[in-house]
């Protein structure tokens, strides 16, 4: 298809080039395939693995990524400078990608986890899981759902999260489910960047000014009670401890003397966050996006 545009009055005409395929308005409806991130991947659950258990585990891993991604995306345009704004958006995007793969994997392993939608709804399984479940059905840890504080709080939370998740994903690369192990292998490369980013800022803030150190320590003290649930859920207490000790030593910071937060389930913050995240999708269960 070649369109010859010779509109000398329109300064923007030449920008479009000759192929509309690169532009949203040029897309033909008949070539819109589903955007299933696992399109064509063999999602058969290997013999010997419990499909429901695998789905529940992928939901937990996916929900952690989804909720943390949403919290990080709230930083967009609010970070201390442009580079960190971009960095946090990148990390949020990596986690959103992990969430899409994991929620899709959960749905393929056990379709009964996907909420029912009105007949004729074009909403794919990953979106149904993200946008049409209640807070009580989310399996994420509390660390990822609490509202964000200042940049010191962000750095402390991201360090704890990325450290535990990276350790877990390194182990999951050997998981018996080839889909989950492939998702983990991709995730390891991404999480290594996230952990380094948080750890460098942790040391920088700790060794910076009195104010930056004060804020970092306040943030660390606030999120530390949620660390026990995180490492227990990911089952990475030993691996995480080694890395955190290395960061804390470089930063000259002691482990906070605060105990774990009691209870389980979710804080009220998750419901509020989901209300904002889900409202548009829920208003249009038959919508095509």
């Amino acid at each position: 298809m070649t369109a010859t545009v010779t509109d000398h009055d329109n300064a923007y005409a030449d920008l479009l080039g000759s192929d509309d395929a690169h532009w949203a308005f040029g897309h033909l409806p008949e070539i819109q395939q589903g955007e299933d991130p696992l399109a064509g991947v063999d999602t058969t659950v290997p013999a010997g693995l419990d499909p429901a258990g695998l789905a529940a585990y992928c939901l937990f891993l996916g929900d952690d990524a989804l909720v943390m991604s949403h919290r990080l995306s709230e930083w967009c345009s609010n970070a201390p400078d442009l580079e960190d704004d971009i960095a946090l958006a990148n990390i949020a995007l990596d986690l959103l990608g992990q969430a899409r793969l994991l929620l899709s994997r959960a749905a393929a392993a056990d379709p009964s986890v996907v909420p029912a939608l009105p007949e004729g709804s074009p909403v794919p399984a990953e979106d149904a899981l993200a946008f049409f479940r209640e807070a009580r059905d989310f399996r994420n840890v509390r660390l990822v759902e609490v509202p964000h504080g200042d940049f010191g709080h962000l750095v402390a939370r991201l360090l704890l999260f990325a450290t535990a998740r990276l350790a877990a994903f390194e182990r999951l690369t050997a998981h018996a489910d080839p889909v989950l192990s492939a998702i983990a292998a991709k995730g390891v490369k991404e999480l290594a960047y996230h952990r380094d980013y948080a750890a460098r800022w942790f040391v920088t803030l700790a060794q910076g000014t009195d104010e930056s150190r004060r804020r970092l320590l306040a943030g660390l003290t606030e999120v530390w009670p949620l660390q026990a649930e995180l490492v227990a859920t990911y089952d990475v207490a030993a691996e995480t401890g080694v890395v955190l000790d290395e960061v804390l030593a470089a930063a000259g910071v002691d482990r906070p003397a605060v105990g774990p937060m009691s209870g389980h389930g979710h804080t009220e913050a998750l419901s509020r966050m989901l209300a904002e995240m889900q409202v548009v999708a829920r208003a249009h269960p038959l919508g095509t996006w």
């Binding site: 395929a21 070539i31 395939q33 991130p37 399109a39």
Partner: peptide
């Protein structure tokens, strides 16, 4: 995915795109 299907269809091929996760890029 859309660009691949689009270009192949222009060249006369009915195309489908499959995702491979392993080995990781």
């Amino acid at each position: 995915r859309d660009d691949l299907v689009h270009r192949l269809s222009e060249a006369g091929y009915a195309a489908r795109v499959r995702v491979s996760l392993t080995p990781a890029w």
